[in-house]
Design a protein around this nucleic acid. Sequence first.
DNA 1: CGTATTTTGTTTAGCGTCGGCACAAAGACA
DNA 2: TGTCTTTGTGCCGACGCTAAACAAAATACG
Lengths: 401, 401
Amino acid sequence: MRPERGRSALGPALELVHTGRAPTRAVLTAELGVTRATAGAVAAELAALGLITVDSRPAAAPGHQGRPSHGLSVNPDGPVVLAAQVHADGFRAALVGLGGHIVATAPGCMTVPADPAHVLAAVVEEGAELLRATGRTCVGAGLAVPSAVAEPDGEALNPLHLAWPAGAPVRRIFHECLTGSGIEFAAAPRAFTGNDVNLAALAEHRHGAGRGSAHLLCVATGHRGVGGALVLDGRLHTGSAGLALEVGHLTVNPDEGLPCHCGGRGCLDVETDPLALLTAAGRAPGPEVSLLQQARELVRDEYADPAVAAAVALVVDRLGLGLAGLVNILNPDRIILGGLHQVLLAAAPERLRAVVADRSLWGRSGGVPVLECTLDHNSLVGAAELAWQPVLDDPLGVLEG
Amino acid sequence: MRPERGRSALGPALELVHTGRAPTRAVLTAELGVTRATAGAVAAELAALGLITVDSRPAAAPGHQGRPSHGLSVNPDGPVVLAAQVHADGFRAALVGLGGHIVATAPGCMTVPADPAHVLAAVVEEGAELLRATGRTCVGAGLAVPSAVAEPDGEALNPLHLAWPAGAPVRRIFHECLTGSGIEFAAAPRAFTGNDVNLAALAEHRHGAGRGSAHLLCVATGHRGVGGALVLDGRLHTGSAGLALEVGHLTVNPDEGLPCHCGGRGCLDVETDPLALLTAAGRAPGPEVSLLQQARELVRDEYADPAVAAAVALVVDRLGLGLAGLVNILNPDRIILGGLHQVLLAAAPERLRAVVADRSLWGRSGGVPVLECTLDHNSLVGAAELAWQPVLDDPLGVLEG
DNA sequence: CGTATTTTGTTTAGCGTCGGCACAAAGACA
DNA sequence: TGTCTTTGTGCCGACGCTAAACAAAATACG
């Protein structure tokens, strides 16, 4: 007779194990603020659901007297979610377990047709193949797209780099593909969609450089354009209509800025993206590889060239000004940079941090740490987080109710 | 034998009555999502604590069959909090009951010495006098200051208009004045401090134009400088160090902007404050009354003058550009304007709303409503909200535990 | 005018979740 | 080997709620 205790503490406990903050039952007890009896029952319940594993043999910690605690970990053979990412160059599908662990990856595809229904059907087909091959059970699906996403149908509001129609109800289409795919879900099929930078921020918050942050700001450049994301107290802040953190049009070069399609001049978007760096360095962009790739290689291979270093310094100054503006508005406790911005930070960390500190108003918040992303495929893992969320909120409700 | 039920639903229930969202026990039942039995017990408990009153005679609603429900309201003779506001021209103290009702107001003072300890001692003295005169019991105290406020001692980080030392631990001083004042508190004396615009936003969210908003942005100009505030899901967002929404240094006039002390040019601060309007209208500011007062009277009395109308249009355009920038970052579902910005909105509502819509990225969020503040003394009421919060979170814990 | 219907409030019984406590287990330290 | 410290488990009760039945107060309808 399984203990029926701990229903309401079940979700928080699973989240603690999922994010690696509860390596043993003892710290689980402390983190939950409950008695050992409750924590033990909760862990047993989660283990019975197949979500976590409790070590049979306790691991003795050195320099620690008293009875050693049994280790807790995410069940490596447990259920998975289907995670996918669509970007300008193609798409990628994977199965992701708890803990943000990528279990299996599909080869993906390098061309994205204009019709979202065809792309998502292909994504789901690859996911179904992965599920067949691995025999895992699936509890949900998440999709990252390079666009702001609105309620209630997951409309992609500005899929500028995909040649998709603006406003395409991506989540609804994704959901329809899933129901028609023959994939068996543990519960009803749940489809989620989010902006890629938002999801990258969520993944970094749970498993990467953003761990423990209460006010996490993430800014990233992909191939063109700048995206931002804010994770407040562990929850993604997408604004009232999914349009928050559209930070690309902060003015960062008022004097001699390039014109921007938004009508302004000197926007963060056109001043700090890969094309801006290449132009500043006097390089003409080639057609072979992506602009991001060209810019990344320029910094990696030719930073010794004074013209390249000057271009990096220029773009870093613009980026710093934009980040300082965001610091004044959002007052984050940590900033994480991805894409080209991550490359720029790696190339000139002191300069970027100094600009952010100098141009944000109060020195105290100017001391905000600016870090690089540390997670591979963070948008993909973030899409998985979205799909895991109902399980984290109410494990019993999803897997049994 | 009082029913001991409803302890955990007590706080949410009190908040519903406090904000006017639960006029009867029937809607309280629906809003809480509990059974009638629980709602009835909770209401009885709150009434026994002296916080709310239950009408003895039910009020029959027209065109509504079935047994009429008993009305719920905040107890007008219940406990109060001491609320105070300090600004450039003096301070004000008041007693505020639940529901944001101002019970009594002190005459206040029109000069603010440089020493915060003396000001707060005077504030507390006036509060003690009010409590003596009214015989009310006091459950806490809140203070609004024109500065960002940090943890853990309520440090005023930038009290630019008070000639106070930056970083003065205002909440700690306030707390010491309260403990030394002889005021008897229902629980241990609790002192809270917040930024005036933040608190105005909180008050408007609970009792004014911001009711029901989940992503409320508030922007206001006082005598000099611009302040912003964000209320997310009913909670004030002050950032990781109390420095969020320092929106005064968004660039809104890149081409020919005035220099700003922040080092930039054309900041919202110097382009949309009272002095900016007076200057744009070609008026030299006089020394008699405050700049805000002069600007307000200019718009009220001389809007027929084409030069004044042109100045209003100019400043409205700058303000609209700044608000559009904030919309792109925060994606609020409502914007509330106070101070001079409220006057500008009243003078040229179509123009301001059009600029916000045009310059924010996606038309859908460009349709965000822009409204005026509707509450008198909203900073004062917001300071009271801060002091009420522990009671709203756990009524029993504060008043009995 | 009396009865049915609708909606609200109260009483009682019971259930689920968690805390408190006692006890057992497993290693560290002397 | 014995004591101390920390961890895990079983049992009981408290607490906070739901469910269900009953009572009350109005409208709707014949």
